[in-house]
Design a protein around this nucleic acid. Sequence first.
DNA 1: TTTTAATTGATAATAATTACAAAAAATTAT
DNA 2: ATAATTTTTTGTAATTATTATCAATTAAAA
Lengths: 150, 150
Amino acid sequence: MAADTKNVSEKKRMAISEKLNRLGLKATPQRLAILELLDGNTSHPSAEEIYQRLKPVYPSLSLATVYGTVETLAKAGELQELNIDPVRKRFDPNPQPHGHFLCQDCGKVYDIELDFPKLDVPQELGEFLAESYSVNLYGICPGCRKKGRK
Amino acid sequence: MAADTKNVSEKKRMAISEKLNRLGLKATPQRLAILELLDGNTSHPSAEEIYQRLKPVYPSLSLATVYGTVETLAKAGELQELNIDPVRKRFDPNPQPHGHFLCQDCGKVYDIELDFPKLDVPQELGEFLAESYSVNLYGICPGCRKKGRK
DNA sequence: TTTTAATTGATAATAATTACAAAAAATTAT
DNA sequence: ATAATTTTTTGTAATTATTATCAATTAAAA
């Protein structure tokens, strides 16, 4: 292990812990594990995927806890629940609005930097007031396009 | 009934029937009923809602047929499947890209004319090629805002 | 008509998510 | 520290949207 790997992840864990406290949430081991897994993670995992990844290292973890944690954090604005995939929610630790691309072949979700200007949120749209928004793009990702010649 | 109401809906039915034929699909009574219900409908109903609305006038209709029909038509590009609502798909007979607003209080979905320019589809986004896209907005709709003083 | 291929309808199967209550852990008060 | 209170976790049951299956029906073609 590199000389300071432990310190780095220790620092990260502290930061997550503080964030939870700031939100008035208890920094439980489960929440730390879930947030640590998500931190900087651009794979947009589902609840089940988070659960499966943490289960080996954290055998007592329950799927219900994963659902509860991500719901709590989404409500607190610390992560995004994506509705891009019709069969399951995906989670993105980056709460900033940005585009997402769902590959209709492999099912992966990618972050996309949008070329049109970001909307402010909250945003007035006629009589409507949007608190959040998302831009979802659909197609076949470059990897699948190459493989499948689609 | 106004003098030509029957003719108007008769015309509409003809147009729908022709559209189905053009797509190489059989113009069955079920499909006509579903498309007639959706035509010009801005309520963005779910499959269940379509089914419930048509059941009284069409008792033999099956929910599976509703799912099948909307899937077929979505694939043909004649309507949009919306993933804005995390619990169920909603359907929009307008296949043109436009924004949608989900009221997090009453659950209604509204069409929103976006103020930023529409993306062309297909659209190149770096190495990604988007075949379709959607812009989903979330908040409390004007009606609920008034009532609930939110 | 008769043939055919597509579609429908009923229901079973699947799968994501939520609900619930008891147990455990964390926090606060004594 | 100990007890009391509150929050969180867990395991599981319940719920619900959607898909799969397949025999029966029906629209369109021959």
